[in-house]
Amino acid sequence: MDKQQVLGPLARQIQPVLAAFIPATEGLTLAQLAPVLARVDERLAQEPVALQRQLRLFVRILWWLPLLTHLRTMGTLTPAQRLRTLNWLQDCGVTKLRLGLWGLRTLLFLGWYGDPAVQAKLGYRPNVAGWDAWNARKRGD
């Protein structure tokens, strides 16, 4: 489950973008992020090969893009610089770039917020037993 077929070696380039999107992941190692990236990878594996290729290309573009403005790669920007760069991209006039960012953002959210442990931390506690379980919890059963 934790091995990434589609993302492969790009995991390292995705890591700083993930940290910008979801600051809670800042400082986590690739090993700690493996289940998150595996969920992303599993979803991506179901998409057409052309789309997988586009996404990989987009990750590479993101990695090198800050060379134009900061003479550094995405991986060496400060968190504030990364966020500014990605925010600029999010509102830029080029629809293709915005869409690429939206797609990557959505996949990484799936990887992180799709994790039942993360969901529980947010206070999301659904139960198949619905009201019965909720009332029991309120009563402290």
Binding site: L83, L110, Q119
Partner: peptide, 12 residues
């Protein structure tokens, strides 16, 4: 949660 995260605009 994931659908909500996807639907809220932005990140960070």
């Amino acid at each position: 949660p994931f659908i909500t995260a996807k639907n809220l605009t932005g990140f960070g």
